[in-house]
Design a protein around this nucleic acid. Sequence first.
RNA 1: GGAGAGGUGGCUGAGUGGUCUAAAGCAGCAGACUUGAAAUCUGCCGUAUCCAAAAGGUACCGUGAGUUCGAAUCUCACCCUCUCCGCCA
Length: 422
Amino acid sequence: MLDMRYVRENTDAVRENIANRGVSVDLDALLELDAGRLVLLKEAETLRKERNEVADAMKSASKEERPGLIERGKKLKEDVVAKEKDLEIVEKGWREEALKLPNMTHPDTPVGKTDNDNRVIDTVGEIRKLENPRSHVELAQMHDLIDFERAAKVTGAKFYFLKGKLAILEQAMLTWAIREMAAEGYLPMTTPDLARDEVLVGVGFNPRGPEAQIYSVEGTDLSLIGTSEITLGGYHKDEILDEASLPIKFAGISHCYRTEAGAYGRESYGLYRVHQFSKVEMFVFCTPEQSEAIHMELRRLEERMFQKLEIPYQVVDICTGDLGGPAYRKFDLEAWMWGRGEGKGGYGEVTSTSNCTDYQARRLNVRLRRKDGTLDYAHTLNGTAISLARALIAVLENHQNEDGSINVPDVLRPYTGFDKIG
RNA sequence: GGAGAGGUGGCUGAGUGGUCUAAAGCAGCAGACUUGAAAUCUGCCGUAUCCAAAAGGUACCGUGAGUUCGAAUCUCACCCUCUCCGCCA
């Protein structure tokens, strides 16, 4: 959500931003609705004022005056109801359109249309030389680590059972990641896996409807979360945070559920695009002054996780056309995966960090009280500490040996209790 | 799941149809007194929105609908909290 006053006063900048992001928002229609809304609002308020005056006059009215005042009051009540109905209709359209407005964009964000326009800003780590690199699916088959077929029988396509040492490896990575985050001052939080639709919308997700990537629970206003960004963002909904308490840093542990409608194909192979996975997510509430530096910190922490896992990756500055609505700027980490690029290997997204500035905070109504007593909206940021499924792919494929055995990265060995698979 | 009680400003808490633009206390801010602090005294002290600003208007007492000339107050539904019972890892 953008500040409507800002939109009114900076229409050119907003228009350019909409164009850069390739979002379908009709700004002119929105501005027209906005102007119409203000007129109706004014009219409704005038009527309500008269109604209040009549009610006020009743208090001291004589017996003779009363019937006349009651008549006026009845008439005004009808007028108010009618005017409010008009206002409600305009406001509904206005709100729908206003919610579609994406966040403004960081000046350094590359302008572009698709992920081909994303800018690689760093490449780190060395890709191991392998004669016969195997995909994680092949490796899993060799060691009986994943059962997709039975998961399909039990639940459906794009679900999986992790077996044996891979199940242990997953838990090891979760525990390791949580401890890493705690050591950095991020408060570990196990969150609900479901949230109210209201919260989903506040964080910027679309819980229902044809475009939705979210599972919703029939007969309730609950949806399965696609990331704990949702529950952590909702955590301080409708609250006023004390400036001195910021930044507030969380490391959320949750399962993540995504419908991934229509996302089948080569790039969705194996564990890469699945309907359920576990994730440790960093989430930060901070002041507007802090958010830029914290975004860099989140990126640095994400990079460090993959450095410690000894997995080569590249950092990508996401272009305007590929940014989600709430993000002001977004970096992705793409790890090397041998199973991509038709067996030759390629980079695949493993983490992502966004600075959402005050966009989510406005929708969630999260404010901060300055030391001088004034109020402002907080800034929110999120970043992936570790996302299982994809991180497992990266570990399996990068730490495989020529014989198909897989070394456990050093940092995980204390948590797995074994050094090698196979 | 059943029965009961309850949700009011940053906090505690009064208020059951019209001076509620919500009592009082605590906390906070400014000032007085004081060498300084405490105590005491005085004043200020919710949010959003409209207006260039001020003045002012409108809305908000868990949420939503309703009754009424008029709703924090009455009615209904929902959400949440607490107590007890049942069930249960």
